[in-house]
Computed example of a mutant assay.
Amino acid sequence: MTSDDIRLGDIIVEGDSGSIVLVGFPYDEGVRRNNGRVGAKHGPDSFRQLLKRTGTVVNAEYDDLDLRKYLTISDGGNINADLTLEEAHQQLESRIRQLISNGKIPFVVGGGNDQSYPNASALLNHTTKSIYVINIDAHLDVRPLKENNKSHSGSPFRLLLEDQKFHQNPSNRFIEFASQGSQCSIEHVNYLRSKSPLTQIFWYQSIRDNPLAPFRTILKSAEEQQSDIFVSFDIDSIISSSCPGVSAPATVGLTAQQACDIAFYAGESLQVKLMDLSEYNPLIEDYRTGKLVTLIFYHFVLGRAKAIRDLMQ
């Protein structure tokens, strides 16, 4: 660190003391079960290495926004990497629920997208409010379980929609965002349709020219209901020319700038209590994809700092 160029990594401390707490989920067994390319278990540690030099702490583009004045960031480490996937899911849910209960904003870096059900379940079992779960993903991830009723990277939101607690509040919502029809079985689409009005799909073709407007509309709707929000971001929704290091790359998809803007608006919404990133696979490609993933996190932090600054002014 030099005094004239302080970066995000320079202000992150270890432990759970931050207002935003990073948690790593170093597992890709769920990807293997879903016949994807393994390697995402290395995502959290690769993310940390690249995070060290990501982003300026004082951002002149946002009216000299100084992150240190409005929030703190800590690294809460990884979920134990030596567990079975089922045990890891249990540990993750307990960990995230504890952080939320202590007023922290967990930001979880995977790992496979199977992490998203334990994360959603942690919020669902903590809050007394309604919740919005927003899945930014080329895929719907509502596949049935496999291998003797085991979860996998394609099943997290099937598990959420089969969770009776999710149905107890009629104001709960599950939103599929940037889904690609070429990647989504009609059976899975019809499954989601059968769960209406709890569910809604924003197809990529309908939002590709301006995904930010509908994303902000979703956030506003949740805010008006005072719902708690979980944003789950599977980075295979980003076009592979910008984000090749994923388990299932997308030939078409969100741009890198759109992904960062979405993360900024997620951070800016104080109703967002939790965010995760899934499917970063550094064994396929580490640097370009990894820098984008850390920039997505940086924009989430920027959005949250700006929201707090606006409240204080």
Rank of each mutant, 00 (worst) to 15 (best):
Q98T: 15
L99N: 08
N119L: 01
I12F: 03
A250S: 10
S116G: 08
G103S: 07
H167W: 15
S179N: 08
Y62T: 01
Q225H: 08
F264P: 05
P197H: 14
L283Y: 09
M275L: 12
A266E: 05
G112Y: 04
L219C: 02
L311V: 11
L302K: 04
T2R: 15
S206Q: 10
R309S: 10
E14N: 15
V231L: 10
Y27S: 02
N169P: 14
E61P: 01
K41I: 00
D276M: 04
S94W: 06
N135V: 05
F297H: 11
P118M: 04
A213C: 07
T199F: 13
G24W: 05
N78Q: 11
I186L: 14
I186W: 02
Y132V: 07
V109R: 07
Q91P: 12
I12D: 08
R143A: 13
I218Q: 00
N102I: 04
Q313G: 14
G76N: 14
T255Q: 00
E223P: 04
D64G: 07
I284Y: 13
V252M: 02
D276C: 05
S237Y: 00
G15A: 13
R37T: 05
S121T: 02
L277N: 10
L51Y: 11
D5V: 05
D66V: 11
L124A: 01
G9C: 05
G43K: 07
S155D: 10
R95N: 15
L254F: 00
P44F: 06
E223T: 13
F177G: 00
L124G: 02
I239T: 00
S278D: 12
N281H: 03
T127F: 07
T72I: 13
K150G: 02
R173M: 08
L270D: 13
I96G: 06
V38S: 08
F233L: 01
S247D: 08
H299K: 08
I175R: 07
N35Q: 09
L161S: 06
F47G: 15
A305C: 08
V109Y: 11
Q225G: 13
I96Q: 07
N78E: 11
M275G: 10
A178E: 00
L283D: 09
V252R: 01
H89E: 13
D228C: 09
Y62D: 02
N281M: 03
L51T: 03
S221F: 11
Q91A: 14
T56K: 10
A222V: 07
R193E: 15
A248G: 03
I12L: 04
T56L: 11
P214N: 04
K129Y: 09
E224I: 14
Q226T: 13
G30S: 09
V31I: 06
R216N: 03
G15C: 11
V301M: 10
R33N: 02
I308C: 05
G55D: 05
R216H: 06
D66C: 06
Y204G: 00
C260A: 04
L192M: 11
D66Y: 15
N210V: 01
S240N: 05
Y265Q: 09
A122F: 02
V21L: 10
N78D: 15
S153L: 05
H126Q: 07
P214Q: 03
D286Q: 13
L67M: 14
E87C: 11
S185N: 15
L50G: 13
L71M: 15
L277D: 10
K129F: 08
D137L: 03
E14L: 15
G103H: 04
A40L: 07
